[in-house]
Measured scan of single mutants.
Amino acid sequence: KVILLEDVKGLGKKGDVVEVKDGYARNFLIPQGLAVEATKGNLKEL
């Protein structure tokens, strides 16, 4: 699961917690600054 930092077409809006494949999160969303891993600490910051 990841928390979206920006609106991502076809996935969700900023602040949404979405389930995506590990590779998509690690190789695209997180490096592009579009999402962060949905850890307990990150979820509390919402």
Results as ranks from 00 to 15, higher is better:
3 I>G: 00
14 K>Y: 04
7 D>P: 08
3 I>C: 06
2 V>M: 10
43 L>Y: 06
10 G>A: 07
1 K>C: 09
4 L>H: 00
16 D>G: 04
5 L>V: 08
8 V>E: 01
3 I>Q: 07
26 R>P: 03
43 L>D: 13
30 I>W: 03
42 N>R: 08
14 K>H: 04
46 L>I: 15
37 E>S: 08
12 G>Y: 01
43 L>P: 05
42 N>K: 06
34 L>S: 03
43 L>M: 06
29 L>N: 00
26 R>S: 08
31 P>T: 14
43 L>Q: 04
3 I>N: 02
15 G>P: 00
32 Q>V: 07
29 L>V: 01
25 A>S: 07
23 G>T: 14
6 E>T: 15
27 N>H: 11
12 G>E: 00
22 D>I: 12
7 D>Y: 12
20 V>R: 01
29 L>W: 02
11 L>E: 01
39 T>M: 06
25 A>K: 06
43 L>S: 04
31 P>M: 15
6 E>G: 10
8 V>T: 03
2 V>P: 00
2 V>Q: 01
43 L>F: 06
23 G>Y: 14
17 V>T: 08
15 G>R: 04
18 V>G: 00
1 K>Y: 11
16 D>M: 11
27 N>G: 12
34 L>G: 01
37 E>N: 09
2 V>Y: 15
3 I>F: 10
46 L>Q: 15
33 G>W: 03
14 K>N: 03
21 K>T: 13
34 L>T: 03
36 V>R: 09
4 L>Q: 00
31 P>A: 14
25 A>R: 03
2 V>R: 00
6 E>F: 15
11 L>H: 03
7 D>S: 09
24 Y>L: 06
33 G>T: 03
44 K>W: 09
9 K>L: 12
46 L>N: 14
41 G>F: 04
46 L>S: 15
27 N>Q: 12
22 D>W: 15
27 N>E: 09
36 V>L: 11
20 V>Q: 01
18 V>W: 03
10 G>E: 07
31 P>I: 14
31 P>Q: 14
38 A>H: 09
17 V>R: 05
42 N>T: 07
23 G>I: 12
8 V>F: 09
38 A>S: 09
11 L>S: 02
34 L>A: 04
24 Y>W: 10
30 I>L: 08
34 L>K: 10
41 G>D: 15
17 V>S: 05
19 E>N: 09
19 E>M: 11
40 K>L: 15
18 V>D: 00
28 F>N: 04
20 V>W: 01
27 N>V: 09
2 V>C: 09
42 N>H: 08
30 I>V: 08
45 E>I: 06
29 L>S: 01
43 L>K: 06
26 R>M: 09
14 K>A: 08
8 V>H: 04
14 K>M: 07
24 Y>Q: 04
9 K>S: 11
5 L>G: 01
15 G>T: 02
27 N>R: 14
36 V>G: 03
32 Q>T: 10
15 G>N: 08
46 L>G: 14
44 K>C: 11
7 D>N: 11
11 L>D: 00
46 L>W: 04
36 V>M: 10
35 A>F: 01
6 E>M: 15
11 L>Y: 11
18 V>L: 10
40 K>M: 14
26 R>W: 13
30 I>A: 02
18 V>C: 06
44 K>F: 07
9 K>N: 11
2 V>H: 04
10 G>S: 08
26 R>H: 07
40 K>D: 15
29 L>Q: 01
27 N>D: 06
6 E>A: 12
40 K>W: 15
3 I>H: 04
11 L>G: 01
8 V>P: 00
1 K>T: 09
4 L>D: 00
45 E>G: 11
17 V>H: 07
10 G>P: 05
6 E>W: 14
21 K>G: 12
46 L>K: 14
7 D>W: 10
10 G>Q: 06
20 V>F: 03
19 E>F: 14
44 K>G: 15
36 V>K: 09
10 G>H: 09
9 K>R: 13
40 K>P: 15
15 G>M: 05
42 N>G: 06
4 L>P: 00
31 P>C: 13
42 N>L: 07
2 V>F: 15
33 G>K: 09
34 L>N: 02
29 L>E: 01
14 K>S: 07
4 L>Y: 00
29 L>I: 02
30 I>M: 05
6 E>P: 00
44 K>Y: 05
29 L>H: 01
11 L>R: 02
37 E>I: 13
34 L>P: 01
37 E>Y: 15
12 G>P: 00
22 D>Q: 12
38 A>R: 03
33 G>H: 09
12 G>M: 00
21 K>P: 14
23 G>V: 13
23 G>A: 14
22 D>H: 12
45 E>T: 04
29 L>P: 01
36 V>P: 00
14 K>Q: 08
39 T>Y: 07
1 K>M: 09
4 L>N: 00
19 E>H: 11
32 Q>M: 11
7 D>T: 11
4 L>I: 02
40 K>R: 07
26 R>L: 08
3 I>W: 07
1 K>L: 11
8 V>A: 02
44 K>P: 15
44 K>A: 14
25 A>M: 13
39 T>P: 09
20 V>D: 07
26 R>G: 05
11 L>V: 10
23 G>D: 11
14 K>P: 03
19 E>G: 07
37 E>W: 15
4 L>R: 00
40 K>S: 12
21 K>H: 14
33 G>I: 03
38 A>P: 06
27 N>C: 14
41 G>S: 13
40 K>G: 10
15 G>C: 08
3 I>S: 03
3 I>D: 00
28 F>C: 04
45 E>R: 09
41 G>Q: 13
27 N>L: 14
39 T>K: 07
5 L>W: 03
32 Q>N: 12
38 A>K: 05
23 G>C: 13
5 L>Q: 06
13 K>E: 07
21 K>M: 13
42 N>M: 07
38 A>C: 11
16 D>W: 13
41 G>M: 10
36 V>C: 09
12 G>K: 00
46 L>D: 14
20 V>K: 00
24 Y>F: 10
27 N>K: 12
42 N>V: 06
16 D>R: 05
12 G>W: 01
32 Q>K: 12
36 V>A: 09
34 L>M: 10
3 I>M: 09
22 D>G: 10
16 D>T: 13
8 V>L: 08
2 V>G: 01
27 N>S: 12
22 D>E: 12
20 V>G: 02
1 K>E: 07
31 P>L: 13
33 G>C: 07
20 V>I: 08
1 K>Q: 11
13 K>Y: 12
45 E>P: 04
2 V>T: 02
15 G>L: 05
30 I>S: 02
38 A>D: 08
4 L>W: 00
23 G>F: 14
